[in-house]
Design a protein around this nucleic acid. Structure first.
Lengths: 341, 341
DNA sequence: ATTCCACTTGTTAGCGTTCACAATTTGAAG
DNA sequence: CTTCAAATTGTGAACGCTAACAAGTGGAAT
């Protein structure tokens, strides 16, 4: 029996370096008061024994796991997936691992369950992709001392820190762009009516039309996908007065483009179309889509920063902070002046 | 000072239930030999104290964290993101949490680093999205006792268990479909030349042409995105002999569609196009894309099953198992018989 | 009754780390 | 040479849990 002890632990390193285990710990945690010479001796010992510290033991005593939790929804889509990526990227450089807990829907129960799973695993903080208030509210049930941040959506601003995009500004930019091209008004295909993001986009669009004195057409609310865009597009295509359509996201826009094409209405010559998000290949739609770009990854990174600040600030850190990032209009081939009559 | 002990631990539960802490542990771990009566008493105590067990302590002694690691690449794209989702979904029902470690590239160093991060956090196993051999090879450096599975790509079949798609079968189906429609031959726009998946797709396509006695046009290798598809599409559009194009994925197909459109070649009347993947909105391209569907989420789930089996099997479990899932051809509007001359 | 075994519970000792404190060494100042 | 504070190191005790064994039940078999 050659191997009695399978892994090397702090004690082994200590013995080899001729110091106590506590000194090894100090080296590991970069405690200032360690003589340079012993430090290198310990480091060499660690190297030669290929020592890796046992994080479970460390977590047990410090109550910090150096793991962050992510509550995600529809992480299969580009937006959430990119946020996840941004979060993980920033977390890694900050020395954290990210554990994920996806929720199947945005009901309270699912969210509470996710919080519970993560907190059992002793995550130090939670970032939630929270497109609906239920998620933010669920976060409030997190045990005291577990810091939470909501990204990408809705939530009581007094409750948790949030990172969100200025949806209204985005749709204002899109709508203004179309009006400036000379369109009499702009139609809108909305997202799901119970998503705050969808509402905010409507708001910015409506306000802009109103301010410009343009008529405000009725909005249809549906979902975020191309199928919905296609359906609404078919309807709008029938109305010859429609010359500009602003869609709540790029997928909807894709469906609208197809509907217009099927109806024989040319884009952008007869009808202009604008999306929202700027997905990876929106620039290769037919025609290339003018859209409002969101930097999801950046939002993810910012939310991580916010979480770390929140954690550092402690319990007594005043009202929650908020970050609002600005989207950017990307003009491509799907928009043009209206046909001259 | 009301709160001396902040959280309730096993001892508190034990005291309230009038048993020893070990009995509480037994209840928690569903040990068979606990009297029904005491079990309920303990459960009630846990409930009333809102007890949550400390997983770090459990991990410390059992050496099992009930956490799985995922090494991901380009998790922002639909395929990887869906796999991640499938994995997380299956992991949750199996009682595991998933921690992610994304790699910026597929170099050996990055992969080793990811393995290291995960193993430090004491994950019980690792699933790696491994489109290139470097990842699988990196997995071999994982400490003994840490089980690994590779999903979605390449790798030495003797090394680790894998889940992969039958790429060749997919492209055979696509190519056959086009030939059966009456096309004289089928052109192919390849993915990156150093991705085994891209190679396999070429293989299936080439074999099918060969068997059918059709001429085998040269292949261009590039990348996985629409921009590449657009570039190749422009070239192919110039050649009037091209009537059928099979693309290595849907994004490439999108670029090809645009190039053909710009060149005034109608799809599917003049040229048929087929993709690979079946992304969410491929059915809304112009025209709706015929493509080869991969069920990424299912692959994720399967890989988790495989990992758990591998873990249960222990060290002595013979050669690694492999799962190959079959893709499915989805016929839509982008394919039709060639124009009759 | 006695014996034995299965069932149920309790006791003790770690798991590998950090924390709090004690002990020692060092170096500069008196 | 003494003194004291700072720098450096070591010692024991947690952290909350499970493993291993011990010990106490009860009932069936002897």
């Amino acid at each position: 029996m050659p191997s009695k002890k399978r892994v090397t632990v702090m004690r082994d390193v200590a013995k080899l370096a001729g110091v106590s285990h506590q000194t090894v710990s100090r080296v590991l945690n970069e405690h200032p008061n360690v003589k340079q010479e012993t430090r290198t001796r310990v480091l060499e010992a660690m190297q030669s024994l290929n020592y890796r510290r046992n994080l479970a033991a460390r977590t047990l005593v410090t109550r910090r796991s150096h793991t962050l939790g992510l509550i995600g929804f529809e992480t299969t889509l580009f937006g959430p997936a990119s946020m996840l990526h941004g979060i993980e990227d920033a977390a890694r450089t900050a020395g954290y691992l990210v554990s994920i807990a996806t929720v199947r829907n945005l009901e309270r129960g699912e969210v509470l369950d996710a919080v519970d799973r993560l907190s059992q695993h002793a995550v130090d903080g939670i970032i939630a992709i929270a497109p609906k208030p239920a998620v933010t509210n669920g976060l409030l049930q997190a045990p005291a001392g577990l810091y939470c941040v909501a990204v990408g959506g809705a939530g009581d601003p007094d409750a948790v820190p949030t990172v969100r995009i200025d949806n209204a500004a985005g749709s204002r930019a899109a709508t203004r762009h179309l009006l400036e091209l000379g369109h009499r008004t702009v139609h809108h295909v909305g997202g799901p009516h119970d998503w705050p993001e969808a509402q905010e986009r409507v708001q910015g669009w409506r306000d802009t039309l109103y301010e410009a004195g343009a008529p405000v057409p009725p909005v249809g609310f549906g979902s975020w996908n191309a199928e919905w865009g296609h359906r609404q597009g078919q309807e709008l295509a029938r109305d010859p007065g429609v010359t500009a359509i602003f869609c709540a996201n790029d997928r909807i826009a894709l469906g609208v483009l197809r509907a217009l094409h099927e109806a024989g209405r040319r884009v952008p010559e007869e009808v202009s179309v604008v999306g929202f998000d700027d997905m990876p290949d929106s620039g290769y739609f037919l025609p290339p889509l003018t859209t409002v770009r969101q930097d999801f990854a950046e939002m993810g990174r910012r939310s991580l920063t916010l979480l770390l600040e929140h954690m550092a600030g402690g319990e007594d850190a005043g009202p929650p902070a908020h970050i609002v990032v600005s989207p950017e209009l990307v003009v491509r081939g799907s928009t043009a002046p209206p046909p001259s009559r």
